[in-house]
Design a protein around this nucleic acid. Structure first.
Length: 825
RNA sequence: GCCGGAGUGGCGAAAUUUUGGUAGACGCACGGGACUUAAAAUCCCGAGGGCCGAAGGGCCCGUGCCGGUUCGAGUCCGGCCUCCGGCACCA
């Protein structure tokens, strides 16, 4: 009578044993063969983990255990991305201070991770809200300030009215705050920025050095950085400063019929000022600037402009061009000013038609000239330059652009220039629960850095959370009132805190020595352990976190703290888990707000941690989105019960090792074919097919056992192999049976089974026989048989004979051990 | 519009890399059976579509569409279609 699979007892036993033995501990001070694995550290939010979150941790743990068994020295740490707005919002709602709220969540999440049997080196645990951690954010900020990489300036910035703080450009999605969904407003504020644009080229070039990142993520980053080659061209303006425009098509310079300025452009401002506060120009500037990003950048937005009456001088013709203000010119891209070439640009054409501005084509195609009066769209590409002075006759494309750049440079009216879509990283946040920016405002000395000896600048405790606009930090007298470190006079502390993406941009380095109070990064350890060999996390961080981390890693390299530019060698983005939402009837991403989550806690209680793990990995290819199904969980549970039963049947049989030199039996061959399949699948994260192979293997062992043909040694060996191969997926059950089958150490210390080709192959093989490319039968014959023999056997085979009888074999294609294709007339 | 990815049973999918070589492994759902007083649980069997045969069995079609290369194409090449993701008034 087989015993019941008591998953609760087995789970508890092994979880506490791993913990007691510190099974995942690694001394990062010891050199040697290393593998650094990392899951993106979680944000400890109030809602408990659901099975959708679990996917990336379970995948990471399976890989971790697989690599351990292969004998690698693997670092697999875990920490907490603990600063952020939800903790502060909870404080406003419930009165619980953010720190208390966050620490409570961390404790609960840690217990959940443990209950899934996930192994981390908890001796490396860190939390970004800990002064021990965030003091180094401040230290890094000061170093970047010294290097001109951190700076403060007034600029139109994204303001989220819901979160009551400014946002980085990366946090604005379709004109809305990525967190709260509120439409973002543009406000002119003085804020702190990090100069990521200085690194645009290096960040772009580095993507080519990342063969183990998906094209998808690299494309997203390339699009975000948005490099475009072109030129800056200067136009003298009557009565005002010279205006520099950026264009990717300097070759169309002679087609320019107007200039257009963003309302934020200094010359636009100057024109409005001179025209007076009630002037049309001033009102236009005011109106456009008040519009939200959503309104201003929406596709349907009507192009609006105003002729200022001011005239600019065309550098090629001397012609006077009207200077317009236009809502479609973006203040932050290029120079905030453009030359309007209606004949060859969609937007300029639309604008010119609306305001009846001249259209002047400067390219003539093979079909001849176009009539600017009747054309309804910008001319298509192709053709040669016309009406462009010396440039006439140059074919469109690189030669024309190169010629134009050479010309403007020669004339001293412009230069070749590369433009980027990427903007500097706005890191100021008007919120409490983040790293205080270490700066002090003194009336006399201006904005001065906090001296290193005064770090960390601690978050004050005497703060009330009311949800009013303005940073709660500003209310703390003890925090705000300080001495100026330069003159000793009274001064005010900076109350902005840092974007939490600063925290996550270097935490992977801190895990190597999380409690080091002398240095931000232990450089020798970083040299030994970096890069992170395998990074696992959600696709939602394809731009934000991964771009910032790549940026900061380069800054640290330039500071000499690390030796590499790319922190993450291999990146894996797991797909989301979706589930039918009963209220909408749609299959949606699993999330608490949608109300379609499944809690792992109940499933673990009912089926055990291993069932949740097996199902989560079996659900589909891990990089793809997969739909959760309640019935699917039952399938995983059935499988583990069968494994348990099989192991029970074998455990009380007599022991014995596999005698060497024995002829491999069918089961032995099966065992080794399974080793190969599972190993190859695990290497590419395809645990869903590895589990499928193990399901087949379990069944095969059971059948062999029933048939009674196999030796007890073969059966025992097969079961022991099954247990080993299944360990990364179902660690608790397999540890239990490994021990009962006589294993002396944890399976983590046991070696991964080695595939022996000689044990996997049989002396006879099945040859597929095709006639004219169609499968007509199969032949069982000796491995490595000659072609002539195979053809003779095929001719004699009763199934194949009718297809070849009385026919000439024009050709035989023979792939030994696999296939014979006979081509007949 | 530009860039990237993907299209295979009722469903999730496998085979796609090494090397073009039996399409649909494994699982879910479904149908049938065994066990049971019964149910649940468990186990066994069946199954891409069509056609022929009493049956054993056999034939044809089939991997988004059209074409190509090849003895042989889900896989390679050319051209499309559709869906998903990113960027997009970025000059």
């Amino acid at each position: 009578m087989a015993e019941r699979y008591d998953h609760a007892a087995i789970d508890a036993k092994w979880q506490s044993r791993w913990e007691k033995d510190r099974a995942a501990f690694v001394d990062t001070g010891q050199p040697g063969d290393k593998l650094y694995m990392l899951n993106m550290f979680p944000y400890p939010s109030g809602s408990r983990l659901h099975v959708g979150h679990g996917r990336n941790y379970i995948l990471g743990d399976a890989l971790y255990r697989f690599e351990r068994m292969k004998g690698r020295r693997v670092l697999n740490p875990m920490g907490w991305d603990a600063f952020g707005l939800p903790a502060e919002n909870a404080a406003i709602a419930s009165g619980t201070p953010p720190r208390e709220y966050t620490l409570g969540n961390i404790a609960r999440m840690k217990e959940q991770l443990r209950s899934l049997g996930l192994l981390y080196d908890w001796s490396k645990e860190l939390a970004s809200c800990d002064p021990e951690y965030y003091r180094w954010n401040q230290w890094l900020f000061l170093r970047m300030w010294e290097r001109g990489l951190a700076y403060r300036r007034q600029a139109p910035v994204n303001w989220c009215p819901g979160c009551k703080t400014v946002l980085a450009n990366e946090q604005v999605v379709d004109g809305r705050c990525e967190r709260s969904g509120d439409p973002v407003e543009l406000r002119d504020l003085t804020q702190w920025f990090l100069r990521i644009t200085d690194y645009a080229d290096r960040l772009l070039a580095g993507l080519d050095e990342l063969p183990h990142w998906s094209e998808r993520v690299k494309t997203m980053q390339r699009n975000w950085i948005g490099r475009s080659r072109g030129a800056e061209i200067e136009f003298d303006v009557d009565g005002f400063d010279r205006v520099t425009v950026f264009t990717t098509r300097p070759d169309t310079l002679f087609g320019a019929t107007f200039l257009a300025l963003a309302p934020e452009h200094p010359v636009a401002q100057a024109i409005a000022r001179r025209a007076g506060p009630d002037s049309e120009a001033a009102r236009f500037v005011e109106r456009v600037r008040r519009a939200s990003r959503l309104e201003r950048e929406s596709e349907t937005a009507e192009k609006e402009g105003l002729d200022t009456g001011v005239r600019a001088v065309h550098p090629g013709t001397g012609e006077r061009l009207p200077v317009w203000l236009a809502n479609f010119v973006l203040p932050e891209y290029g120079t905030g000013a453009i030359m309007g070439v209606p004949a060859h640009d969609e937007r300029d054409f639309e604008f010119a038609r609306k305001y009846r501005l001249p259209v002047r084509p400067v390219y003539r195609s093979a079909e001849g000239d176009v009539d600017p009066e009747t054309m309804t769209a910008p001319t298509p590409h192709g053709g040669v330059l016309v009406r462009s002075g010396d440039w006439d006759g140059t074919p469109e494309g690189e030669p024309a652009i190169a010629r134009a750049i050479a010309w403007v440079e020669d004339k001293g009216v412009g230069r070749g220039k590369v433009g980027y879509r990427l903007r500097d990283w706005l890191i100021s946040r008007q919120r409490y629960w983040g790293t205080p920016i270490p700066a002090i405002h003194c009336e006399k000395d201006g904005v001065v850095p906090v001296p290193d000896r005064d770090l960390p600048v601690l978050l004050p405790q005497d703060v009330a959370f009311r949800g009013a606009e303005g940073n709660p930090l500003a209310q703390s007298e003890s925090f705000v009132n300080v001495e100026c470190p330069v003159c000793g006079g009274p001064a005010r502390r900076e109350t902005d805190t840092m974007d939490t993406f600063v925290d996550s941009s270097w935490y992977y380095l801190r895990f190597l020595a999380p409690h080091d109070d002398r240095e931000m990064v232990d450089s020798p350890r970083a040299r030994a352990w970096m890069p992170v060999d395998q990074y696992i996390g959600g696709i939602e961080h394809a731009i934000l976190h991964l771009l910032y981390a790549r940026f900061i890693c380069r800054v640290l390299k330039d500071m000499g703290l690390v030796a590499l530019e790319e922190p993450f060698e291999r990146l894996f983005n797991q797909g989301m888990i979706t589930r039918l939402n009963p209220s909408t009837g749609k299959i949606e991403k699993m999330s608490k707000s949608r109300g379609n989550t499944v809690s792992p806690d109940e499933l673990i209680a009912k089926f055990g941690a291993d069932t949740v793990r097996v199902y989560t990995l079996f659900i589909g290819p891990p990089e793809k989105e997969s739909e959760w199904s309640e019935e699917g969980v039952l399938g995983a549970s059935r499988f583990l019960n069968r494994v348990h039963e099989l192991a029970s049947r074998v455990a009380d049989r007599p022991t014995g090792s596999v005698p060497s030199g024995r002829e491999p039996s069918d089961l032995d061959r099966r065992t080794h074919r399974t080793i190969r399949r599972v190993t190859e699948d695990a290497e590419r994260f395809h645990f869903h097919t590895a589990v499928a192979a193990l399901m087949e293997f379990q069944r095969a062992i059971g059948e062999a056992l029933d048939a009674g043909q196999e030796s007890p040694e073969s059966v025992r060996e097969a079961v022991a192999t099954l247990v080993k191969l299944l360990h990364p997926v179902a660690p608790h059950l397999t540890e239990e049976w490994w021990e009962r089958l006589g294993g002396k150490t944890s399976l983590l210390e046991a070696s991964w089974p080695v595939y022996e080709p000689s044990l996997a192959t049989s002396p006879r093989v099945t040859l597929v026989v095709q006639v004219n490319g169609r499968v007509r039968g199969r032949l069982d014959l000796e491995r490595g048989a000659e072609e002539a023999e195979a053809v003779a056997l095929a001719r004699a085979d009763e199934k194949i004979r009718p297809w070849v009888e009385g026919k000439q074999i024009a050709r035989a294609v023979y792939v030994p051990d696999r296939l014979l294709n006979l081509v007949v007339q």
